[in-house]
């Protein structure tokens, strides 16, 4: 019983981190058709900025807010002044975002040094909570709640607001939205910045679990790539389901077949894509 409960909670909390990390990536792909190779850099920079702010101010929420705002501005600048010039040119976009990946990685190494670090948790969420006969880390329980909250807010934003309607329409038919007199370049910049901010938020929320170190950007980007591919490129709902699938598969897989733990995150991806070539919720 406790085996199932603990591994289910582990899987769920990891899945929520995965979701926050990949939601921005899939949103940006859905609208701008960009596979942003530098997405992991936003995770790393967000985590580091939060770390510095929290160390200086001893305030978790302040760290989160400043990381999200700073990385959103960075994302907006990057989209507005570089990516926008390469609209719909898939290959130069890859060249550009990979170039940024190297630059940001080296910049982070330069500023924050290479020693692995962790974003500190909020003090109230330190330690374990006892219930149903088990002791479970409070922060992980909170992550599950926060992840669901982020998912609900994103869904409400996309489905229930005018901005969301514009974004959804833009995903379907960019020209139509343009013809309706909407400033689509502005929407692009905003969505890219928003996606970057989500990754930074992933860095702050996931930072206490995953850590910040040279190469974390790459590791995180790999995880996010797996999630968005399984879920279907461009689908937030797909990313949510895929996060659950990958998070739970990785945990139960590691628990049941420790020898195969190298592949527990990748095997679900291969199976899903073999059965559904566009991912779970993707449009062909």
């Amino acid at each position: 019983m406790s085996f199932w409960l603990i591994n289910a909670l582990n899987g769920l909390s990891f899945a929520m981190v995965l979701f926050v990390l990949s939601a921005g990536l899939t949103l940006v792909f859905g609208l701008l058709r960009i596979i942003n190779m530098a997405h992991g850099s936003f995770y790393l920079l967000g985590g580091y900025i939060a770390l510095s702010v929290i160390q200086a101010s001893d305030h978790f929420m302040l760290g989160m807010a400043s990381a999200c705002v700073a990385v959103m501005l960075l994302g907006a600048a990057m989209q507005r002044w570089t990516l926008a010039r390469l609209h719909k040119q898939e290959l130069p976009q890859s060249l550009l975002t990979l170039g940024f990946l190297f630059m940001f990685a080296d910049l982070a190494f330069w500023i924050w040094g290479g020693n692995p670090q962790l974003v500190p948790k909020p003090a109230v969420l330190e330690g374990a909570i006892r219930f149903a006969g088990i002791a479970y880390p409070a922060y992980r329980l909170a992550l599950i709640g926060i992840g669901v909250l982020v998912a609900v807010l994103l869904w409400a934003l996309l489905e229930g607001t005018r901005i969301g309607a514009v974004v959804r329409a833009g995903m379907d038919d960019e020209e139509m939205v343009r013809a309706m007199g909407i400033n689509i370049p502005l929407v692009f910049t905003a969505v890219f910045a928003f996606g970057a901010g989500l990754a930074a938020m992933g860095g702050v929320l996931g930072g206490p679990l995953l850590g910040l170190f040279p190469g974390a950007d790459f590791e995180v980007a790999m995880l996010a790539f797996v999630v968005v591919t399984v879920g279907g490129l461009g689908s937030i709902r797909g990313a949510f389901i895929a996060s659950l699938l990958v998070g739970l598969a990785d945990n139960f897989g590691t628990a049941w077949f420790p020898q195969l733990s190298l592949f527990t995150a990748i095997i679900p991806m291969v199976i899903v894509l073999a059965l559904r070539p566009s991912g779970l919720m993707g449009r062909a």
């Binding site: 060249l95 550009l96 170039g99 990946l101 190297f102 630059m103």
Partner: peptide, 9 residues
């Protein structure tokens, strides 16, 4: 990285 970015642009 900077060289790649410049080439892309």
């Amino acid at each position: 990285g900077a060289i790649y970015v410049l080439f892309a642009l």
